[in-house]
Amino acid sequence: MIALRDVSKTITEPDRSPRVLFDRLDFELSDDERSVAITGRSGSGKSTLLRILAGLDTDFEGTYEHDGRALERTAPRMAAHRLRHIGIVTQDADLLGDRTVLDNVRLGVPERSGSAALALAALEAVGISHLAGKRPGRLSGGEAQRVAIARAIAKRPPVVLADEPTGALDERTEDDVLTLFDLLQRAGTRFVIVTHSGRIAQRCDRRLVLHQKQLLEPHP
C-alpha cells in the first residue's frame, strides 16, 4: 500500500531557528489494516506527516513508496498519485459556500465525465443524498462533515487521510461519523486518522504515537 522510509524533515520556527520534526521516521499502511490512528502532542508534526502522506509536502528526505515502489518526489508526480489513490478529509470540511452539496462533492472527482453519478453515489454512501441540492451554509456541522467525507471517497480511493475529522463536532455527531467510517472500512476503504481523541484511536486497528521525531507503538 503506502509507506514512508527513513523520512527526515526540518522546519523553520517563527524566530527563524531550525527544528527537526522527523528523524528517519518510518510508516507503513499494510494491505491487511483498515485503519491507523496517529496521536501525539500539539506541534509534534501530525498534520505535517499527513500532508507528506498526501503528497502535498515533498520537502523532506527519505522515500515515499506505493505498492513497494519508490515514487519520484516531485509535485506533479505526487499530485497524480494523490488523484488516483488518496482521499483527504479535513477538520473544517472546507466546502465552497456558493456551490451545492453535489457540486462540492464533484470537486473530488478528477474526471468531469460521470462525476455527478459518482458524487451522488458518495452522498448516498454517507446517507445524505437528500441534501444534494442544498448549499453548505444550510447544513449542520455533522452534515457538512459528511459532505467532506463524501468528497474524499467520491473517486473511490483506496486510502482516506483524515486530519482531526471530528474535532469540531459534538460527541453524538462524532459517534455518527465514526460509525460511518466503520461502514466505509468494511466496504474496503482504508483510513489514516490524525486525532487527539482517545475514542477515535481505540476504534482503529492500529495506534501510533508521534513522539521525539518518531512514530512509536503506544505503551500498553
Rank of each mutant, 00 (worst) to 15 (best):
E217K: 05
L215K: 07
H66M: 12
G137Y: 02
L50D: 03
T48N: 00
P218L: 09
E13H: 14
L56M: 10
R34Y: 09
L21S: 07
S113P: 10
L161S: 05
I52S: 08
G127Y: 04
D6F: 09
A154K: 00
R151K: 00
R206H: 09
P218E: 05
E65Q: 13
E217V: 13
Q185E: 13
R5A: 09
R112F: 14
D176C: 14
A93V: 13
P14V: 11
D92C: 09
L120V: 11
L180R: 01
L107A: 00
C204T: 12
I193Y: 03
A117V: 00
Q185F: 03
L56C: 11
L184F: 10
D175E: 13
F60M: 07
V126R: 07
D176V: 15
M78K: 00
T63N: 11
R84K: 12
G188E: 01
L161M: 11
D6T: 11
A119G: 10
G97S: 04
L120I: 05
Y64E: 02
S129H: 04
D182V: 09
F22L: 04
T179S: 13
A187M: 04
A187C: 07
S197E: 11
L180G: 05
L123Y: 03
P220A: 14
L180M: 12
V209N: 07
E171P: 14
